[in-house]
Design a protein around this nucleic acid. Structure first.
Lengths: 221, 221
DNA sequence: AATAATGTTACGGAAACCCGTAAGTATTTA
DNA sequence: TAAATACTTACGGGTTTCCGTAACATTATT
């Protein structure tokens, strides 16, 4: 049983199903938030009142709105939550299926479960809640192997940064200079070439354009 | 009033809300399909039985499955429907917000309405159904201006083809040769360079990598 | 401490890209 | 039909990328 559960999702229709499931044996106290910023506020308030949440279920993608939001998406939210309330258990429930992003959520931001919205989404979410309730973790079968599989990729932060700059239209020379200014190593043109070459082999890209296209498809950038 | 409505969407939870809305004054006969191929079968069957559908509401993105599907996504479905049953009215209801794709759906495949899933999605969908019922059309406010606005872009099929080949990792020279084989004009390296140059100016890209990244973000490819 | 292994930087030449100019071809307009 | 316009192709040369080789620096191993 959970004492208090916070659900963050801007699409009402989905909340309904989740709510029914939770009320059916897992908790009596379900609170909703439709924006990430709103979620943070409710978490803070609950903490101040001495009745903190012990489970957070959140989507990843939120439609933008007229209201300015500090946290633009679920990944920002999970990151912030992990830094501020490291003990709060987090389940991500999203249509998103970019492996790299899911990896980040699980390994870097300590999310306890990741469930793909889909045909069997609700059923899987129920299993996820049960698992987290028992201090275990859960991953949708469709992403399980991909996330826990041996680190075939080994794409680190530097690689991601590099790919991002490339996708922003900077030349390799410009990236080199920029890295030197920001004291990011390695920064030589040669090293950048070498790193891109490694990535091209890993991701089986013919050239830099192909590389960025693949990286975008995989959700690395 | 509609005689028969087909809803295509693999996420049950969303269908519930839509169903409630429709039954509330628009139709008595709502049928569901969870796969695009299944939708086609039901459309054919209904036609054979002399009781064809007169409204189709569909999502765009479908999770893949163990079952092999000919039509992979909603865009394929809308295209096929438009070719096979040009009189069947189509409403697209999706989280997707890539302008170029929506443009294609409306102008090329004759979809009657496009509604963004979101905070006010159900409300907007209701307006869309009402509009289509009166032989009108409907677009979510958030995409309305973008779709109907003067063709700022002017990006044609050739441009899209070109960008696609580029994103697949072909060099400009390879693309030129391929176009010559396939009798696609213009095919000279020079023309391809020129066209890419035009696109870089239009989309404000620094180089080809940047160009492909932008095109992917905009949903052009 | 010496060696090995890995990571970073440097350099040179071939290939690809970028960009301007201009000639040739097709279409439109007067 | 002739002139004007737009489109396609060709070419040259500077820039960037690509790829191999190799020197230098740092870390790990024995």
């Amino acid at each position: 049983m959970f004492k208090k559960v916070l659900i963050v999702d801007d699409l009402m229709s989905i909340n309904l199903g989740v709510n029914a499931m939770l009320k059916n044996g897992y908790t009596q106290n379900v609170v909703y938030a439709h924006y990430c910023d709103e979620a943070i506020l409710k978490l803070k308030r609950a903490e101040q009142d001495g009745e903190p949440f012990d489970l957070l279920i959140t989507d990843l993608s939120f439609k933008e709105d007229h209201r300015e939001q500090k946290l633009k998406n679920g990944e920002d939210l999970v990151m912030t939550v992990n830094m501020t309330w490291p003990d709060l258990k987090v389940i991500v429930y999203s249509i998103e299926d970019k492996i790299q992003r899911i990896r980040r959520l699980i390994h870097q931001y300590q999310a306890k479960a990741y469930v793909c919205k889909g045909r069997y989404g609700l059923k899987e979410l129920e299993q996820a809640v049960a698992a987290v309730n028992k201090n275990s973790t859960y991953l949708s079968p469709s992403v399980e192997t991909a996330v826990n599989g041996q680190e075939v990729n080994e794409i680190d932060d530097f690689d991601v940064l590099l790919l991002n700059e490339l996708a922003l239209g900077l030349s390799q020379d410009e990236i080199s200079k920029q890295f030197k200014e920001k004291k990011i190593t390695p920064s030589s043109l040669s090293s950048i070439e070498k790193r891109l070459n490694k990535l091209k082999i890993q991701l089986q890209a013919n050239n830099s354009i192909h590389l960025v296209a693949i990286a975008k498809d995989m959700g690395i950038i």
